[in-house]
Amino acid sequence: MLEKLHRLPAAESLDLAGYRSDFQRHFWTADVTWKLERRLTFREPYTPSWSAMAQGDWARSLSLAAGMRAERAEHQRELDRHGIIQRRIRFVCNPPTPYLQWELQLLFHWAELGEQIRVLPVEAAEALEGDAVLPEVVILGDRRPDPVMYEIGYTDGLLSGARRFDDLDVIESCRNEIRELWERGGDLLPYFHREIQNLPPPPPQGV
C-alpha cells in the first residue's frame, strides 16, 4: 500500500500551517505514533544546527544539536505522561548523505531519551518501490478508533505540507507495512556508534 499511496485520494490536502495545526490537534490523543523516513536529503534552514552544518561549521552544528537535548527531554517526559510511544524507521545509506549524517546526530539523542528508532539500509526500500519512492509517512494512533495518517510533502527539500488520510483500511495497511519494516530494522544506537560517530565532518552544503 505504501508504494501506491501517492495515487490514492486523500481526505484533505494541507498547506504547511494547516498540517502543523492538524498534527498538533491529533498528536496528543494518540497511543502510538509511527514514522517512516525514506528520503536521504532534506533542507532545514530554520534549524540552527542544520544551518551550521550546511555552512561547514560541524563543531557548532554538533554543539547546537546537543543543546536541543534538554527541550527534547521535556518533550519525552510529556509523552510519557500521556502514555504515547513513538516509533520511527529511518532508511540509511553508506556512506551517509550530509543531511543523514547530521540528522542521525539528533536522532541519537532522541533515541537515548526514549524514542524507539530503528534503521534499515535504503536497498530494503528500493526493493519495494515501483514508479515512485516510498513516501514520508506519519501515523498518529494505533489502537484508538480514529487514527490519522499524513503523507508528508516537500518542495525543493523543504517541508511544505501534507496529505491527510482518514480511511481506516488504508491506514491499517500502511501501519502494518511500517511496523514490519520497523521490526526488521536494527536499533539506532549501536548503528550510530558503529557507522556514524567517528565519521569526518560532512562537506558544506550551502543554504
Rank of each mutant, 00 (worst) to 15 (best):
E12V: 05
E12A: 13
E12G: 02
S13H: 04
L14T: 00
L14R: 00
L14E: 02
L14D: 00
L14V: 00
D15P: 00
D15T: 01
G18Q: 04
G18F: 00
G18L: 01
R20N: 05
D22Q: 08
F23L: 12
Q24A: 15
R25D: 08
R25I: 00
H26M: 04
H26Y: 06
H26E: 07
F27V: 01
W28G: 01
W28A: 06
T29D: 15
T29L: 13
A30F: 01
A30Q: 08
A30V: 06
D31C: 06
D31R: 08
V32S: 07
T33R: 03
K35W: 07
K35F: 04
L36K: 01
E37F: 07
E37C: 12
R38S: 12
R38I: 05
R39Y: 15
R39C: 10
R39N: 15
R39I: 06
F42T: 01
R43I: 11
R43C: 12
E44Y: 10
E44Q: 12
E44T: 04
P45A: 11
Y46C: 02
S49T: 03
S51A: 15
A52D: 09
M53L: 13
A54H: 02
A54V: 02
Q55E: 15
D57E: 14
W58G: 11
W58C: 10
W58A: 10
A59W: 09
R60I: 04
R60G: 12
S61G: 11
L62Y: 03
S63K: 13
L64Q: 14
A65H: 03
G67K: 09
E71A: 15
R72S: 12
R72Q: 13
R72V: 08
E74F: 05
E74K: 12
E74Y: 08
H75G: 14
H75V: 09
Q76F: 14
Q76R: 13
Q76Y: 07
Q76K: 11
Q76P: 00
R77V: 05
R77H: 11
E78R: 15
L79R: 13
L79T: 04
L79D: 02
D80S: 14
H82D: 06
G83R: 02
G83I: 05
I84C: 04
I84A: 05
R87W: 09
R87I: 08
R87H: 10
R88M: 14
R88D: 11
R88G: 10
I89A: 07
I89G: 09
R90T: 10
F91N: 08
F91Y: 12
F91C: 06
V92H: 03
V92N: 09
V92S: 01
N94E: 15
P95E: 06
P96C: 07
